[in-house]
């Protein structure tokens, strides 16, 4: 078996969560890599949608932005942005919204707006973009991000995109009919919400990761599911596809290749 990095394990584990039948609204960054690895391995017919209006896109390199020309060139169709949000997202066509986060809490609530106070922020982050409505209107939401004390916090500074709120039936109480976050894939493991409390619990540890490491990188007391599995390590083909994709992407973004 080839050596692999924690980042590669994260991307590949996230890719495996997607299926051929999914219509996936892709967030930029880590989700974009995972979604395209899925398309290039076990889910060739997956529909990938970026908020720029590109539907059914199949980029050869990862886009730097959500609207690179590559996305439009390879899309089944490209629609105006108001239509993207009104018909395709709000209309209920998206099976999975795949998001990243700057700060995340145990109930899958996401902050990408500010660190500190909104009016006088310590760090002004980019903001929500499409995420608040992706989180509410996609049939379910997958989240992928690296674990760190800075990112996995007891209390997020701002509720940019609603996950399970305070847990339990909080989504239903706000009138949401979608499932919300159902899966969290990190560089250390895989988490799923408890069916009742909706708190994310660890269901799988990546190879070589300990429970202690899981806790060290998280700002709340981590709960583990009754049976914690070990994530299957990246396969040879999965790794080759991911590394090729990353290499093509790096070359393209530095302007050394078309």
């Amino acid at each position: 078996m080839t050596d692999f990095t924690a980042d590669e394990m994260m991307t590949i584990a996230a890719a495996r969560a997607l299926s051929n039948d999914d219509v996936c609204f892709v967030g930029i960054g880590a989700p974009s890599a995972a979604c395209n690895v899925a398309r290039l391995t076990h889910a060739p017919d997956i529909t990938l949608i970026y908020e720029s209006g590109t539907i059914g896109t199949a980029p050869d390199v990862l886009p730097l932005s959500i609207g690179d020309g590559e996305l439009c060139d390879t899309a089944v169709t490209t629609v105006p942005v108001p239509e993207m949000f009104r018909y395709w997202l709000q209309g209920g066509w998206i099976t999975v919204g795949f998001l990243g986060a700057a700060q995340l809490d145990r109930f899958g609530n996401i902050n990408t707006t500010v660190v500190g106070d909104y009016a006088h922020p310590k760090v002004r982050l980019p903001g929500g973009g499409g995420a608040p409505e992706i989180a509410a209107s996609s049939r379910e939401v997958f989240i992928t991000m690296k674990q760190s004390r800075r990112g996995f916090v007891e209390k997020i500074d701002f509720f940019t995109s609603f996950g399970h709120g305070e847990g339990g039936d909080h989504r239903q109480r706000l009138g949401m009919t979608t499932k919300g976050p159902t899966l969290l894939i990190t560089d250390l493991g895989v988490w799923k919400p408890d069916p009742e409390s909706k708190e994310f619990t660890v269901t799988s540890l990546h190879p070589g990761v300990t429970r202690a490491q899981m806790q060290e990188t998280v700002g709340w007391t981590v709960r583990f599911s009754a049976e914690v599995e070990e994530t299957e390590p990246p396969g040879t083909e999965e790794l080759a596809v991911l590394r090729d994709l990353k290499e093509r992407t790096a070359r393209a973004h530095q302007g050394e290749a078309a």
């Binding site: 909104y118 929500g128 608040p132 409505e133 509410a136 701002f158 509720f159 940019t160 609603f162 009138g175």
Partner: peptide
């Protein structure tokens, strides 16, 4: 249909 649970 938007801003559900969103602090903005």
């Amino acid at each position: 249909r938007g801003y559900l649970g969103a602090q903005l």
